[in-house]
């Protein structure tokens, strides 16, 4: 799973972006957030999308998650089906994204319940996920009673409970102090390892980027082809290095869901 060769099978490609672009607004006010981005995410990938604020990395992440539609180009999830369901892709947001009227365990269980799991089962899995990220003792708290780091860990537990095949995290450490941030990255990496899921993180913090195997620099809405990363992950540090992937976008093939 973590030895993807140049002729990786279709099934292994979880996310496939083809010249995917996103523009906000119209006419004179139009702002291009992402210029046609072409990239792929495969099982076992640990990717950091690096760039300054406003470089479009969050938008790219949202496109990958299927939360926004590209204004041009295409995005497919060859191994996940189309469109990707929230069950397969777990997202950790930059801003606090817990529902204020639900307590911690209910928040963590929510995606499972939404995808049809019974409430008791969802609760059980949420509790074990909270335990895994070390916040089980907060289960009965309300979001407003949590600190920023705690809230972010709960958000990670929410993804973990879902057992998705891709974890996307948008600036997960942005609002945290260094120690807390490091811990959250630890939890993300552990989670991805345990689930066997791909992990994509956007960050402007190079110390976070260094902890992942691939770094995709992004600048003014463009993925920049850079020199190969120090990590030994084959020749595909630059996303454009995979031009001949199949048009998986039309494929209905699903990987086995966990």
């Amino acid at each position: 799973m973590n030895a993807p060769g140049p002729d990786t099978t279709l099934v292994d490609t979880l996310i496939d972006c083809r010249e995917a672009a996103r523009t906000y607004g119209r006419g004179e006010n139009a702002v291009v957030a992402v210029h046609g981005a072409t990239c792929q995410v495969r099982s076992g990938d640990r990717i950091a999308i690096m760039g300054p604020s406003g470089s479009g990395k969050s938008t790219l992440l949202h496109l990958m998650a299927g939360l926004e539609r590209p204004t041009s180009g295409k995005i497919g999830w060859p191994a996940l089906g189309r469109p990707a369901t929230a069950r397969d892709i777990g997202v950790v947001f930059q801003s606090p994204s817990l529902i204020p009227a639900l307590d911690v365990v209910e928040n963590a269980a929510l995606p499972l319940v939404l995808s049809g799991t019974s409430e008791s089962e969802a609760r059980r899995r949420a509790l074990s996920a909270l335990d895994a990220v070390g916040v089980a003792d907060l289960a009965d708290k309300l979001p407003e009673e949590l600190s920023g780091g705690q809230a972010q860990r709960v958000a990670v537990a929410r993804v973990l409970a879902l057992r998705p095949r891709v974890v996307l995290a948008d600036e997960p450490t942005g609002a945290l102090d260094r120690a807390t941030g490091r811990h959250v990255v630890d939890v993300l990496l552990d989670t991805a390892a345990e689930l066997g899921a791909a992990l994509v993180v956007t960050t402007h913090d190079s110390t976070v980027g260094e902890r992942l195997t691939e770094r995709w620099p992004m600048h003014e809405g463009r993925l920049v082809a850079t020199a190969p990363a120090p990590a030994a992950s084959g020749p595909r540090t630059a996303p454009r290095a995979r031009p001949n992937a199949t048009r998986g976008e039309t494929s209905e093939t699903r990987g086995e869901t966990s």
Binding site: R87, I99, A101, L110, S115
Partner: peptide, 18 residues
């Protein structure tokens, strides 16, 4: 007032029906 709540729920995969 709960637009945020609904937005989060949608992002977490709530269907229109839900």
């Amino acid at each position: 007032e709960r637009r945020r709540t609904f937005a989060i729920a949608t992002v977490l995969g709530a269907t229109r029906r839900q």
